[in-house]
């Protein structure tokens, strides 16, 4: 099977300031279907630039990028936008949900635009199905301000899934969440990945990266490390451990109160 992502010696040079900034300096990378990749690195390492290029939000200065077999470095702006809508789903650190809009309608949003529009009935079914995947079908008519941070991010994940993308790109998806909610969200990603969805995630937290199957570390615009994750964390197990620890702490507190 062809890789979802195949980039060959891509470079990105920004010319905006006095000195051109060489943000990505020759990265080659293949990501196969069903992979779950963490993209790590300090700020300024080029990971966001690389992510933008993977997301077709920015074009490489040099080098080639095949997304699902299509050479996107040859496409113009409109064609890029179409590819984005068809093949990619995005999840952001800040959720980016519309306030005045229910969870279900937020999930439907990407279907409203772009070239092909489905019927509103099909759209609703599709959105409902995606909410169900992230475990929020019972919250479909809630407004974002009635949902917790973790639930909001799950709605955003459902929204990223609605166009049946080949690749899910997540930019610091747990950056605004506490550690427990982060594990829950990582659990959603792991479940999606088991169902066959390819995921690339930018993160600077090692704890979060351990839930992925493979991790890349960027430094100064090049990949300095590319390995499978050793003793990978599984969200379900981590959550069970957390619960156990909480119960133990409660028992301890109750015990000391009684004594």
């Amino acid at each position: 099977m062809a890789p979802v992502v195949k980039i060959d010696q891509i470079h990105k040079i920004y010319d905006s300031g006095d000195v051109p900034v060489h943000a990505v300096r020759g990265v080659s990378l293949e990501i196969q279907q069903k992979e779950f990749v963490a993209l790590m690195g300090a700020s300024g390492s080029g990971k966001s630039t690389l992510m933008n290029m993977l997301g077709c939000l920015d074009r490489p200065t040099r080098g080639s990028y095949l997304l699902d077999g299509v050479d996107v470095s040859l496409l113009d702006k409109n064609e890029l936008a179409d590819i984005r809508n068809q093949k990619l789903g995005f999840v952001f650190q800040g959720f980016n949900l519309l306030a005045r809009t229910t969870a279900l309608e937020n999930v439907e949003l990407p279907c409203l635009y772009g070239k092909t529009r489905m019927s509103s009935k099909k759209m609703r079914e599709r959105a409902m199905y995606c909410l169900d995947i992230v475990g929020l079908s019972n919250r479909a008519d809630h407004m974002p301000n009635q949902l917790s941070g973790g639930q909001q991010q799950r709605v955003a994940i459902a929204r990223a899934l609605v166009n049946e993308p080949q690749l899910l790109l997540a930019d610091e998806p747990t950056g605004n969440l506490d550690s427990r909610t982060s594990i829950e969200v990582m659990g959603v990603f792991q479940k999606l990945n088991e169902q066959g969805i390819t995921i690339v995630m930018v993160t600077h937290e090692l704890d979060v990266a351990r839930y992925c199957k493979r991790y890349l570390i960027l430094r100064d615009g090049i990949v300095v490390r590319d390995e499978p994750t050793q003793d990978r964390s599984i969200a379900e197990i981590e959550l069970a451990k957390l619960k156990e620890a909480e119960t133990a702490a409660k028992l301890l507190a109750a015990g000391s109160a009684a004594a």
């Binding site: 409109n78 936008a81 809508n85 995005f90 952001f92 980016n96 409203l112 635009y113 772009g114």
Partner: peptide, 18 residues
């Protein structure tokens, strides 16, 4: 309007009217 949301709409290729 929240810049992130404006960019999101641009990313989806929503028209100016949408």
């Amino acid at each position: 309007t929240d810049r992130n949301l404006v960019e999101l709409f641009a990313m989806w290729r929503a028209s100016r009217w949408q």
